[in-house]
Amino acid sequence: MALLEITVAPLGTGDTSVSKYVAACHKVLAKEEGIQYQLTPMSTIIEGEIDRLFEVAKKLHHVPFSEGAMRVSTSMKIDDRRDKETTIEGKLASVKSKL
């Protein structure tokens, strides 16, 4: 499994709030199969097979357009390990065990 951190930001909407766009993205995520996801204060982390993550990222990028945005900037960071299984919970547990 790979992890994808994604931030989808509508630009030029005339409003500083983006929570309605984040909520709309999470409604899309809730319907997707084969992935796990977690909302963070600054982004969303998605766990799944790498090809599936790219499919989901494309869908999320289009969400603000369907909500009326005319420009969207999407940033992604991928953690794709081949030496061992990686999960959202596993990464969190690793850090917590060292605190």
Rank of each mutant, 00 (worst) to 15 (best):
G68K: 11
I45C: 15
K31H: 10
K98L: 15
V28W: 06
A9T: 07
V18M: 01
I35A: 10
Q36Y: 13
L11R: 01
P41T: 00
T87L: 05
D83S: 14
P41L: 10
E55Q: 13
L3P: 08
D79Q: 01
V95R: 10
D15L: 09
Y37T: 05
I78N: 00
E85T: 14
R52Q: 14
A24W: 13
V8P: 00
K31W: 03
L4T: 05
E49T: 06
K77S: 08
L3S: 11
K20P: 03
S66P: 11
H61E: 04
A9I: 07
L99A: 14
V63M: 01
P41E: 02
T40N: 14
G48F: 04
G14Q: 03
P64N: 02
H61G: 03
G14P: 01
S73A: 10
E32I: 08
S94N: 14
T16K: 09
I6M: 09
R71K: 12
L4D: 08
L29S: 04
A2L: 04
S94A: 15
V56L: 12
L53H: 10
E33S: 10
R81K: 08
I6T: 13
K91E: 06
C25E: 12
I50F: 11
P64Q: 00
A69Y: 04
A30I: 08
A9P: 00
A69R: 02
E55P: 02
I45T: 15
E32N: 05
M76S: 02
R71W: 09
E55R: 13
E33K: 15
A69H: 03
L4F: 03
G12R: 07
K96A: 14
K59L: 02
C25K: 11
K91V: 06
I46M: 06
H61V: 00
T13A: 01
K27L: 12
S73Q: 11
E67L: 02
E5Q: 12
I50C: 04
M1A: 08
F54R: 09
V8T: 01
I46E: 13
S97A: 09
Y21V: 03
F54Y: 15
V22M: 04
V18W: 00
I88F: 04
K96N: 09
Y37Q: 15
I78K: 03
I78Y: 10
K77G: 06
K91M: 13
E49Q: 14
G34Y: 15
P41K: 12
K58R: 11
I35F: 13
S66E: 12
G14K: 02
A2R: 06
E5N: 10
T87R: 08
S97T: 07
L4G: 03
M70R: 13
T44M: 13
L11P: 00
L39M: 14
S73H: 04
L53V: 10
R71N: 11
R82Q: 13
E33C: 12
V95D: 01
T74E: 08
V8D: 00
E47D: 07
V72R: 02
T87V: 05
T44S: 15
Y21C: 01
I45G: 10
P10N: 00
V22N: 01
S94L: 12
L60F: 03
D79L: 14
T74N: 13
K27P: 02
